[in-house]
Simulated assay, not measured.
Amino acid sequence: MKPTILMAPRMPARLVERLQEHYTLLGPMERSAPEALPAGADAAQALLTIGTQKTDAALIDALPGLRLIACYGTGIEGVDRARAKARGILLSNAADANAASVAEFAMGLLLASARQIGAAERFVRAGRWKGNAVERMAYVPGLAGRKLGIYGLGAVGSRIASRAAAFEMSIGYHNRSRRDLPYLYHDSLLGLAEWADVMIVAVRASAETRHAINAEVLKALGPQGHLVNISRGIAVDEIALCEALETGVIAGAALDVYEHEPLVPDRLKALDNVVLTPHIAANAETAQIAQQDLMLANLAAFFAGKPLLSPVAL
């Protein structure tokens, strides 16, 4: 008999097909709540979910057979880790499977914002380009020689750093601890912002990182500064960011994530000095296949009684 597993959000078709080959697959669920559980969920030994979706104590306790929570992406913030630990439930995520994809997208957003690529496209589409002799866009600083501050030098942040080095940028970072990497460590986020010309946010969602990018940090980044966020929306105080963009406290921003997804504040939508994308940094085909394969490998290891390939400590 195939083991029973439960899929909370809808997963990619390729992954679902492969899961159905080896498991009795239940779901997806309308919402992650006990009252939305499908028939037979009490037999589920593994729950497949994503970090932004709530997996709270009530849902965990409504699944008496649950022994593994497998997150499709790298995020784990929606999981009640204390309750999972108390129940002896294992937790896994995608580790660094999508790190390269997110890092390259971060550099794309940085270029789009700092080099005004979106504004340039609107300039051309509006028919304003009459040739360099008549009208052209204002000069902006390039990236070469500028200082990039990375908030969070984990799997994604370190890959951003290596890519930024190829752009001849100076690289500094703020992390919970110093890394053994050849970049300038700052022991405070404010100190990093004061040093940096541009900043990329690459931290996990947590109580510690919530609204870490606030009005004080944005002011320190300065009027030629640009902010890029490809991590989690809660790391940036969106009200403070809107005010900074509206008043010229910083020059621009590029966001792939938002505090209350899929809602994007109208104030952000109204601004020309911000680039907005719909949480797609990890949407490279290679990254998605790697995440799917890792989830399948974790499930196979779990049901074979072997160690998980990408366990998360509880």
Rank of each mutant, 00 (worst) to 15 (best):
L109N: 03
L110C: 01
L110T: 00
L110D: 00
L110M: 08
L110H: 01
L111Q: 01
A112N: 01
A112I: 00
A112C: 05
A112D: 03
S113I: 00
S113M: 02
S113H: 01
A114D: 00
A114W: 00
R115I: 02
Q116R: 13
I117G: 02
G118R: 10
G118L: 07
G118N: 13
G118I: 07
G118Q: 11
A119L: 13
A120L: 06
A120H: 01
E121H: 15
E121S: 09
R122E: 09
R122G: 06
R122C: 06
F123G: 04
V124E: 05
V124G: 07
V124H: 04
R125N: 12
R125W: 08
R125C: 07
R125L: 15
R125K: 15
G127W: 06
R128I: 06
R128K: 15
R128E: 15
R128T: 10
W129M: 01
W129Y: 13
K130N: 12
K130A: 15
G131A: 09
G131K: 03
G131R: 07
N132G: 15
N132T: 08
A133P: 03
A133G: 14
V134L: 15
V134W: 09
V134F: 09
V134Q: 15
R136L: 13
R136C: 12
M137Q: 13
M137P: 08
A138T: 08
A138H: 11
A138Q: 13
A138Y: 08
Y139L: 13
Y139W: 06
V140I: 05
V140F: 02
P141E: 06
P141K: 08
G142Q: 02
L143V: 02
A144R: 06
A144F: 01
A144Q: 09
G145L: 03
G145N: 05
G145V: 05
G145I: 04
G145Q: 03
R146Q: 11
R146M: 02
R146A: 03
L148M: 05
L148W: 03
L148S: 06
Y151A: 13
Y151W: 10
G152K: 02
G152H: 02
G152L: 04
G152W: 04
L153M: 12
L153D: 06
G154Y: 02
G154N: 04
G154H: 00
G154L: 03
A155T: 07
A155D: 12
A155G: 03
A155V: 02
V156S: 04
V156R: 04
G157M: 08
G157E: 10
S158A: 13
R159T: 07
R159L: 15
R159H: 14
R159G: 10
R159E: 15
I160P: 07
I160Y: 09
I160M: 14
A161H: 07
S162G: 11
S162F: 10
R163D: 09
A164I: 07
A164Y: 05
A165I: 10
A165M: 11
A165G: 09
A165C: 08
A166Y: 09
E168F: 08
E168P: 04
M169N: 07
S170K: 11
S170R: 10
I171A: 11
G172V: 07
Y173A: 12
Y173C: 09
Y173E: 10
Y173F: 15
Y173D: 10
H174E: 12
